[in-house]
Design a binder for these strands. Structure first.
Lengths: 177, 177
DNA sequence: CCTGAATTTCAGTTTCTACAGAATTTAACG
DNA sequence: CGTTAAATTCTGTAGAAACTGAAATTCAGG
């Protein structure tokens, strides 16, 4: 009871998202749940997610916790239903930006911190000059990416799309400026 | 014998790179080897890598194979030495581009393929119209990113750096164009 | 060819992660 | 305040991934 009947295309979509999840650094169930909420486009209770995907209720509970930690899923309440319902944005741009923001925070910023500490270390002089230089260049690249990323994340999707459409032609604008 | 004596900063760098490796989707040893080759900046034989990092020789062999599959590490031969030596680029920009290119290929392009198949499916009509729409929008975003990524990857590092420095000010250029 | 160094492959072990199912806690409702 | 649905936490397990050390293979040099 309660298990949604997924049509073949939705099923394909959810299963593929789950497979890619591992390559993207989240586990299958987490990715599947997110894909399912996205494709269904309306709030679902945890037990329905569990039944539809054929996984344990406790697994869904933990996966939802992780999706909430990623700011990808929110809890919602439905009148006359004691259960929590869960939604994700149906705006792919919003999702994209959330993922980028979160990954940047987890996978990028900590390294910038460590590189700064390396360059501030009292032992830095013990390293070969060219090794020091490489650490500096690595930090510089990562800081530039970080700042640029933050700026891009603040732009409107429509603007961001224009930037992408402009693509390599941006060179021309840079030259004539 | 042969184990390099890493100074504290280099050690910190290598260990941190190894830790982050898991978040980036490669295992610790693979990330450590790459970091070590990068910071040392000269070709090293496999056994020296093994000794310096304190891991099994066979582990290094497999990890190097993976790094070569990522196009991040190359084999080199030294006169009078039968052993293979391994290097990585000391140009952080080149490394960055290689990683982006490879990850795009592995983690991005396959999904674009699946989304296209979903939209071409004879069963597509069975899905709710708004679900169809979301799949379309997802594909469109991913395709745009893909094309844009390819174009950016072709630019010179110096140009790319200018683009980043321009940052959000690109809005102004877009408007007046 | 034969020898020995270098490398890879293989088999087994350890470690980690994902997950199920049971037990427990939380909290809505009468 | 007790009852019960819902959610979470806990415990154990299966499978995957990382890793080691040994065995097998490759290959340069005599």
């Amino acid at each position: 009871m309660g298990a949604m009947n997924l049509h073949p295309v939705a099923q394909r979509f959810v299963l593929h998202w789950g497979e890619m999840g591992s390559k993207w650094g989240v586990n299958r169930t987490v990715a599947q749940i997110h894909a399912l909420l996205y494709i269904v486009g309306k709030p679902l209770p945890a037990d329905e997610l569990a039944e539809t995907l054929g996984v344990a209720r406790s697994n869904v509970s933990n996966s939802l916790k992780e999706l909430q930690a990623w700011n990808l899923v929110q809890v919602i309440h439905v009148m006359g239903d004691r259960r929590d319902h869960f939604t994700t944005s149906t705006d792919v741009w919003e999702l994209f930006r959330t993922v980028v923001r979160e990954r940047k925070e987890r996978e990028f910023d900590p390294t910038i911190g460590v590189l700064r500490e390396c360059l501030d270390s009292k032992d830095l002089h013990k390293e070969a000059p060219d090794a020091q230089q490489r650490i500096k260049e690595t930090l510089h690249l990562m800081e530039s990416l970080s700042i640029w990323g933050d700026q891009m994340l603040r732009l409107e999707p429509a603007t961001l799309m224009k930037v992408m459409k402009l693509g390599a032609k941006i060179q021309n604008l840079l030259n004539q400026k």
